[in-house]
């Protein structure tokens, strides 16, 4: 009973938050327009957090996703400015994400550096590279082709005035791909086995190194996607714009982990974490709560949720 309460506590928290804002903001919060807006606002965080879940399933994590996102945006923008077509710039930026992820994976799995330290190092490297490539400037205006910026403004219109943003659809697609990969493929099961006991997984003949390498590559790819979405949304790229993604993505996965049977991450639970963070941000903004106060509140909620969960687990 207690266990179920602990597992569903985070979900109940999400419903509570929705209810709270629905009562406080009766005219604006629970409207299709606002909810679709929220879905777009959180789409970049969602993509980062979903793919972050892949490494966290193994008990690793990746601090470099924010600067990978920034770098991907910058690389795409620089290539656009150099006259590359949209598809080529996007492909190159995604490739940068994969390469960055492979570098993280190689450092962690083959060199044997702790993920915290390895990705802290690459965070700085990617961030410095983004500044170097962009000359420290924001790239915007004519350099960003309309075809690229238009993506974030496009969507699928359901009825008059109700348009599902393309970014939200992209996030849902990533969610589905990560869900199937983690929960319904042999690959995903192996990642969970590594998270369950890396030593036993190795002795039982899993190719732990290659699995870790590939998982980091996927996380890097997701971070690059999020960076491109961000650049498309603001129709510009600057070397720090992804910086906020990393902490929120890790926080979202941690929130989701409170719902795992053994405290393990699942991407659908990560979605709940993303929704909590996104809806709090949206609702508090609408209530004109000061942004600094907002940060304090969100940080407090993450700590409280994780604390309650580990307290509950310690007591069985």
């Amino acid at each position: 009973m207690l266990k179920h309460l602990r597992q569903s506590g985070t979900l109940i928290g999400l419903l509570g938050i929705v209810l709270f804002f629905a009562l406080q903001l009766p005219d604006t919060f629970l409207t299709a327009r606002n909810l679709l807006n929220v879905s777009q606002q959180i789409s970049m965080l969602a993509v980062t957090a979903f793919t972050m879940t892949i490494v966290m399933v193994m008990g690793d994590f990746d601090l470099s996703v924010g600067s990978t996102a920034s770098l991907a945006g910058i690389v795409a923008a620089v290539l656009f400015a150099a006259g590359w077509p949209v598809w080529a710039g996007v492909a190159a930026a995604l490739a940068i994400g994969v390469v960055g992820g492979l570098l993280n994976g190689a450092l962690v799995a083959y060199v044997g550096i702790l993920p915290f330290i390895a990705t802290l190092g690459t965070l700085t490297i990617f961030s410095g590279t983004a500044f170097l490539v962009s000359d420290g400037k924001t790239i915007f205006g004519r350099d960003i082709p309309p075809g690229f910026a238009g993506f974030a403004r496009s969507g699928v219109t359901l009825t008059e005035g109700v348009t599902v943003p393309a970014m939200s659809i992209a996030a849902v697609l990533v969610l589905l791909v990560v869900y199937v990969t983690l929960e319904h493929t042999i690959y995903g099961r192996r990642l969970y086995a590594i998270g369950g006991n890396v030593h036993a997984a190795e002795l039982a003949g899993l190719n732990v190194r290659r699995l870790r390498l590939s998982a980091f590559a996927l996380t890097g790819l997701g971070a690059a996607m999020a960076g491109l979405m961000y650049a498309s949304r603001v129709a510009s790229a600057n070397p720090t714009q992804g910086a906020g993604l990393m902490l929120d993505a890790i926080a979202a996965v941690f929130l989701g982990m409170t719902m795992g049977r053994q405290g393990e991450p699942h991407v659908m639970a990560t979605l709940v974490g993303v929704l909590i963070l996104g809806i709090l941000d949206n609702g508090l903004t609408q209530m004109n709560v000061d942004s600094y106060v907002r940060e304090i509140l969100i940080g407090g909620i993450v700590v409280a949720a994780v604390a309650m969960s580990s307290y509950g687990r310690a007591r069985g």
Binding site: R190, N197, A200, Q262, E264
Partner: peptide
């Protein structure tokens, strides 16, 4: 410490390799 994923089920532990 070397054999089992204690938090995972019998099926996954058995079929792992």
């Amino acid at each position: 410490s070397e054999g089992l994923m204690l938090g995972m089920d019998v099926r996954c532990n058995t079929l792992l390799p």
